[in-house]
Amino acid sequence: MENLQTYLKWVIGLLFTLVIIGAGIMIWNQTQPMMQMANRQAAEQAQAIADDEYSAYDYQLVSGSQVLTAVRRYAMKEVFYIYVKTNTSEFGVRLSDAATTCPKFDYSSGTIDTSGITGCYTTTKEMMEISDTDYVPPQARFRSTLLRDGNDRITGIYFRQQ
């Protein structure tokens, strides 16, 4: 009789433990889609916040002075490129003293060609010199386009004079 009571206690304890484990697994399985959705939304929010910095240049018409402001503003960013096409020339902008190369750029399509590099030799001083071939007229209108890499991260801006 005593063995039967011990056996019943052991079986009831085991069943109770299995019920608790089963309930935990069921709750875990139900929360997984919610956690994945929350993670996805958090990543989208983080991307939106990061992209918000560049919203003024997302396929907008900007003046030549705003082009120069963008060059000054993003001069300290690493792995960031600015390409400009005026009515007289096309060039990559050297944002810092160390950065003299940029990825190749197709000025007709407005896309980066990752297969090679090119020189980014134009400085802000040259862009402001009226006698320079790379002069950016402050009153001119430019269509700005954001450049993205394979990870959909903004890596530059392309300004094309209208």
Rank of each mutant, 00 (worst) to 15 (best):
E129K: 09
F16V: 09
T145H: 14
R143H: 06
E44I: 07
L15G: 08
L4A: 13
L147A: 00
P137V: 10
Q47C: 01
T17P: 00
C120L: 04
R148N: 05
G119M: 11
Q32I: 15
K125H: 04
K125R: 08
G119T: 14
T111S: 10
E2T: 10
D52L: 10
N87P: 00
K85Y: 02
S65C: 01
A70T: 05
Q30W: 10
N3R: 07
E78F: 07
A46W: 03
S144A: 11
L4P: 00
L95K: 06
G22H: 07
Y7F: 08
V11D: 02
M34Y: 10
G13Y: 02
D51N: 15
I12K: 11
L14H: 06
K85S: 12
Q66D: 13
V11C: 07
T122L: 04
W10R: 13
Y59K: 12
Y57I: 03
Q60C: 05
Y107V: 04
W28L: 11
G116I: 05
L146Y: 08
Q41D: 13
Q161L: 04
I27R: 13
L18I: 15
G22P: 01
G156E: 07
M1S: 13
A99L: 04
E129I: 00
A70P: 01
E90A: 12
V62M: 01
A70H: 03
R153H: 10
V136G: 00
K9C: 03
L146C: 03
S63R: 13
K125N: 08
D52S: 14
Y135S: 03
G150E: 15
V84N: 06
S108H: 03
Q45Y: 10
G92D: 05
L68Q: 13
S89L: 00
A48N: 14
Q162S: 09
Y59C: 01
L15H: 07
T133Y: 04
M127F: 02
S55D: 05
G110V: 08
A38C: 03
E126D: 05
T124W: 04
